[in-house]
Design a binder for these strands. Structure first.
Length: 327
DNA sequence: AACGCATACAACCGCGGGGGG
DNA sequence: ACCCCCCGCGGTTGTATGCGT
């Protein structure tokens, strides 16, 4: 619906105004111009992440560090997935929200490529209203979002049944739901980043190693042994129990029952499943990276690049249903 | 065409936590 | 113990765009 902010004349005039005020060193506010984006992007490419105040200063931006951080995390970061939320993501958000409440950052860690801000906005603008509408239509007085109840599924009205995980995953990867906002900048970033990525490791032939995570931001100072594939697995909400050093998966923090949380993965995923999930997700990482090298746009457009099994949402939802609820 | 409303999303603000001096 | 700085989070506001009248 809404077009991405880009080369609006207004922004250029804002930049001009900003330049006028440079002498006063007054921090700029408001929308970011393409020039500012480029400055920040270039700086991040060259120097990587650091103290945001320094970044703002050294990149030649009249922005506070906070603003730079926000812009990077929510918009410029190459792993940010843009575009509409799929029904599956929506269901996952609703489900996770029923478990975690307004802990957007924690929800976001389980939706690779989505930012807490994006999820929060999506929730406030769309899901909340839909749930309200659904609950008002419901004859039952119980409007809580207990994920285990049939009510929960009713509230999901209009959403696809989770029984069909194939459709689920296919729709999740629907390229039509992705925009190419900022893709040129991302392409620049990723192409430059890829050139610096080591393409070695014990993860299969030609399996690239990504710093920090496949969906994360390359970080200066990490060696190969510190690299994790966190982003690929984080939505599983626990420790897979395999190669702990490599597969660093954050648990659902602050759960009221940590014992059950910790035990879920090992109890419910046998080694075969573990291997399959890891392999599939690593393949996804590899495919994604490969796509990136061929041009960022293609990353989301290739129909066959991201396979259905790679995101076993049925499994995910089943597992997250087993987590204890919050009060 | 003009206006107003709804929507989506970017960005800001305030607060709290953590670390260092 | 205190202060300062930085970071991250959640709530909120601002604004561009779409759409109906």
């Amino acid at each position: 619906m809404r077009k991405p902010i880009g080369g609006a004349n207004e922004l250029n005039s804002m930049m001009s105004n900003a330049n006028v005020t440079t002498t006063t060193m007054k921090m700029r506010k408001g929308l970011w111009s393409p020039e500012e984006d480029e400055k920040l992007m270039n700086y991040m490419i060259t120097n990587g992440q650091g103290c945001w105040s320094d970044i703002a200063r050294n990149a030649g931006l009249q922005r506070c560090g906070k603003s730079c951080r926000l812009r990077w995390i929510n918009y410029l970061r190459p792993d940010v997935k843009r575009g509409a939320f799929s029904p599956q993501e929506e269901e996952l958000i609703v489900h996770l929200h029923s478990l975690l409440g307004n802990r957007w950052s924690q929800i976001a860690t389980r939706l690779p490529g989505r930012t807490d801000n994006e999820i929060k906005n999506f929730w406030n603008s769309t899901v909340k209203k839909r749930l309200k509408k659904s609950s008002s239509n419901s004859s039952s007085p119980n409007t809580s979002l207990d994920s285990s109840s049939s009510e929960h599924r009713d509230i999901m009205g209009g959403l696809m049944s989770m029984q069909d995980s194939s459709t689920f995953a296919a729709m999740y990867m629907d390229s039509s739901q992705r925009s190419s906002t900022s893709s040129s900048l991302q392409a620049i970033y990723m192409n430059q980043t890829m050139e610096r990525l080591p393409l070695t490791g014990d993860h299969g032939p030609n399996m690239p190693i990504l710093n920090a995570s496949c969906y994360g931001t390359p970080q200066v100072g990490m060696d190969d042994n510190e690299i994790s594939y966190q982003g690929c697995y984080q939505i599983f909400g626990g420790d897979l129990g395999l190669e702990d050093e490599m597969f660093n998966i954050p648990p659902l923090e602050n759960m009221t029952n940590n014992n059950s949380t910790q035990g879920i993965k090992r109890e419910n995923l046998d080694d075969t499943n573990n291997s399959m999930i890891i392999t599939n997700n690593m393949n996804q990482c590899y495919n994604k990276v490969q796509a990136i090298t061929e041009g960022f746009e293609n990353c989301w457009e290739g129909e066959d690049e991201l396979k259905v099994e790679e995101w076993d949402f049925e499994e995910l939802m089943r597992e997250s249903s087993m987590f204890p609820s919050f009060d």
